[in-house]
């Protein structure tokens, strides 16, 4: 039985790895942005900043990378496979129902871990970021685990979006949600209205948790952010479930 899950995850991983659109957009965007904002501009502390940008942005671009890996794998992957008939073939087969989602989740976390490792390497090699090993591990673990609510969000998108519009839909949710939660540039540099609205975004709570590991001053409590992310996960999973039930009885000739 576990063999099925392993095979499903292995195939999902190979499939996405060989899909250039996926591997490039999930790996290249975060690394490139981190090079621009974290490395090129951020070696020395900015006025008013509490730590070098290279270090601070490691947490936020790590979050950005993990969110992207999950949203593309689920949002685009599910929309395409559902919309173009592949999911039907799988559902007609004896594949355990959960294997499809579990494999996509495991692979999203794996890609998240790969990109986070690359970011850490860049930060350590070119950004002069130095931390105790436990802190590196804690940050990495927090970032990878933070993929969960975004897998649920991706599944919700995938269950509603059409196969052709899914990539655009994902980007329209992903990019603003990242920017407005301070994943690109720190929240305190954003306009006040955006700062006020940020707590309504799951990305905000994710970034606050990751920054907390770095001992950056954060708003709210750890439990508060974990609770908020759990609530977002439930909401997204609920929406995904509604989309899935709706799909079951869709017209066919």
């Amino acid at each position: 039985m576990t063999h099925v899950y392993w095979m499903e995850a292995k195939c999902e991983f190979l499939k996405l790895l060989r899909m250039r659109v996926y591997s490039l957009s999930t790996v290249l965007f975060p690394l490139m942005f981190y090079c621009f904002f974290g490395l090129a501009m951020g070696r020395s502390p900015q006025p008013g900043a509490v730590m070098p940008m290279a270090r601070y942005l490691l947490a936020t671009y790590g979050a950005f990378a993990v969110v992207g890996a999950s949203l593309y794998a689920f949002g685009v992957g599910v929309a395409v496979e559902r919309g173009l008939g592949w999911l039907q073939v799988k559902r007609a087969s004896p594949m355990p129902r959960a294997a499809y989602v579990v494999a996509k989740g495991a692979v999203s976390l794996t890609f998240g871990a790969i990109v986070v490792t690359m970011l850490f390497t860049l930060g350590a090699a070119f950004g002069g970021v130095r931390m105790p090993l436990e802190q590196w591990l804690a940050l990495g673990g927090t970032l990878v685990a933070g993929a969960v609510p975004f897998c649920a969000l991706g599944l919700a998108i995938g269950n509603f979006a059409g196969p052709n519009s899914a990539p655009a839909t994902v980007n329209m949710i992903y990019m603003p949600m990242a920017f407005c939660a301070g994943l690109w540039i720190p929240l305190q540099f954003l306009p006040g209205a955006l700062q006020q609205a940020a707590p309504f975004l799951p990305t905000y709570h994710f970034a606050q948790l990751a920054l907390g590991v770095l001992h950056a001053p954060v708003q709210g409590t750890i439990m508060g952010h974990v609770g908020a992310l759990a609530a977002f996960t439930m909401i997204f999973a609920g929406i995904a479930w509604i989309g899935d039930s709706r799909e079951q009885e869709k017209a066919y000739g």
Binding site: K15, E81, W86
Partner: peptide
């Protein structure tokens, strides 16, 4: 089926 995963 309109599209089978092509990169496997």
């Amino acid at each position: 089926v309109a599209k089978v995963p092509e990169t496997l």
